[in-house]
């Protein structure tokens, strides 16, 4: 199954109820605007960045994340930094990884803490000054006897 197909409804209520679409769910969240707050106003383009997160996580304590950016990683053309942004965490900018040509490949593997179901944004800053981005959604299936979280 394609990730995109899964994600299309994964965050909404069940399909039969004609419930929230993904767009409605994220209506208050604009990844491009969030990206701009980091890039200093430069619009980030889609592509070149691959972001992997599990579609479902039992809890948000330690969610594995992988980011890979297409780049020759030469002195002339390399990834300068990779940033991970969160839709819902109190710290929007979860991580900054600084890279250089000596890194060889622009790949990061780490774990992040997520404050509930949300969209995560990965941003790559190139040595030429351009920015690239990718987003991924993760559902955190909280087993909480409370309202208003998850």
């Amino acid at each position: 199954m394609k990730r995109r197909a899964f994600l299309a409804t994964v965050v909404g209520l069940p399909l039969v109820a004609q419930a929230q679409s993904r767009d409605e769910y994220f209506s208050s969240f604009n990844p491009d605007a969030l990206a701009k707050s980091v890039t200093g106003g430069v619009a980030a383009r889609r592509g070149r960045v691959k972001l992997e997160l599990p579609l479902l996580a039992d809890n948000g304590n330690s969610v594995p994340v992988k980011i890979a950016v297409q780049s020759p990683m030469t002195p002339a053309d390399h990834v300068r930094s990779i940033r991970l942004l969160s839709e819902r965490n109190p710290e929007r900018e979860m991580a900054v990884f600084h890279l250089g040509p000596r890194a060889g490949v622009a790949e990061i593997s780490s774990r992040v803490r997520l404050a509930g179901s949300q969209r995560v944004v990965a941003l790559a800053e190139m040595s030429g000054g351009s920015w690239w981005m990718e987003t991924a959604d993760v559902v955190v299936t909280l087993s909480a006897c409370i309202d208003g979280t998850g």
């Binding site: 299309a8 994964v10 069940p14 399909l15 419930a19 559902v139 299936t141 909480a144 006897c145």
Partner: peptide, 12 residues
């Protein structure tokens, strides 16, 4: 595509 929504029996 998560057709059944939330599966948790918690929080009444």
């Amino acid at each position: 595509k998560r057709a059944w929504g939330d599966m948790a029996a918690v929080g009444s």
